[in-house]
């Protein structure tokens, strides 16, 4: 009898396509993506309304100054950079996008365990790691499509609320944001998938994944933020003590070790790298607003590299860890 051996790429495609078709029929992820679009849209619109309010306040103050015959240059005009309005969108991708990716990863594992199909796939002539790889590639494809939908929708909405069309440069920045987002969400998908595949029951895996999400996505950056001395006193500690800038720097230098520790907690979170990279690329962080893209990329390539290596490392762990045959069913 001739030996039957499917090609590796064929097997990967077969598994990934079956997953995609199942997701398309199930529609849970479609609804989740639409919910993310809605959340991103809410962020964008409320941001625009707030900016509009600032502009109106500025216009009123300026008119008042001019009426009094004073120089209007005394008050700073609110600056408008459309991409800055995407701050809320990025944060929703960071938080809600991450949850959707975890749930998608959980579903990719739970579906196979609950039906005994994992055992059927693993007794086919393909390496076991290929199964994991197919699932992760499927997750990356899902993340790519969902994020493209979110960013295109918010891009169009941005034009609507700001009245300014996005140029090629802006589109390039959005494309970079998309790429970083795909790495970020794929990493979280992999985490949800791996834990749901390894845990005693997939639900336990999902719970562990959510707990890690809270720690990595929410708590670690929050701790770093809270430890900032200037966030410990309302209005900032130095401002309240009326210490001049030069003296502030001297005092801060004495806390270099503390500051490194604080930064260390922040950068342990993959979310913070995603945020730092996208905030810089989109000019959300003031120091990068209007900065040329090549300069931003030169400074922030470390964050992108971290995202890439983190996704790769997590994927590697999931692929290399053998699948426990006692985990073939939903409950074991």
């Amino acid at each position: 009898m001739p030996e039957l051996r499917p090609s590796l790429s064929g097997s990967l495609l077969t598994i990934a396509l079956r997953d995609a078709r199942e997701q398309a029929r199930d529609r849970v992820l479609l609804w989740a993506t639409l919910a993310l679009v809605a959340a991103a849209a809410v962020s964008l619109v409320t941001g625009a309304i707030a900016l509009h309010g600032d502009a109106a306040t500025y216009a009123a103050a300026r008119a008042q100054l001019l009426a009094l015959g004073k120089d209007a240059a005394a008050i700073a005009a609110p600056e408008f950079y459309p991409l800055k309005l995407l701050r809320g969108t990025i944060e929703q991708i960071e938080i809600m996008g991450a949850v959707i990716a975890l749930v998608a990863g959980y579903r990719a594992a739970a579906a196979e365990r609950g039906r005994q199909t994992l055992a059927l796939i693993l007794t086919r002539p393909l390496p076991h790691w290929a199964y994991g790889l197919a699932k992760i590639l499927g997750g990356a494809a899902l993340a790519a499509v969902a994020l493209a939908l979110v960013l295109v929708a918010t891009g169009l909405l941005l034009r609507l609320v700001s009245g300014i069309g996005l140029g090629f440069g802006d589109a390039g920045r959005l494309a970079l944001t998309w790429a970083a987002g795909v790495f970020y969400l794929t990493a979280l998908f992999t985490l949800g998938f791996g834990l749901s595949l390894w845990a005693k029951s997939p639900v336990s895996g999902l719970i562990y994944a959510f707990a890690l999400w809270i720690l990595v996505v929410l708590v670690a950056p929050q701790i770093g933020d809270t430890m900032d001395p200037d966030n410990q006193v309302a209005g900032g500690v130095f401002a309240q003590l009326s210490v001049p800038k030069a003296e502030q720097d001297r005092i801060k230098a004495g806390f270099a070790g503390y500051e490194s520790f604080r930064n260390g907690i922040e950068v342990a979170s993959v979310t913070k790298h995603f945020e730092r990279f996208t905030f810089a690329v989109l000019g959300i962080k003031d120091t990068y607003t209007g900065a040329p893209l090549d300069k931003v990329l030169a400074e922030k390539r470390g964050d992108l590299l971290f995202l890439f290596l983190f996704s790769l490392g997590l994927g590697g762990v999931v692929l290399l860890k053998p699948i426990n045959p006692d985990r073939l069913t939903k409950e074991s």
Binding site: R18, D26, R115, Q116, A119, L126, L328
Partner: peptide, 21 residues
């Protein structure tokens, strides 16, 4: 393992398969 898997068929207990398909 790969040659072996190409030569076998396996039916586990309580198989459910993909419900949506």
């Amino acid at each position: 393992p790969l040659k072996l898997r190409a030569a076998i068929g396996y039916l586990p207990e309580n198989v459910r398969l993909y419900d949506q398909f």
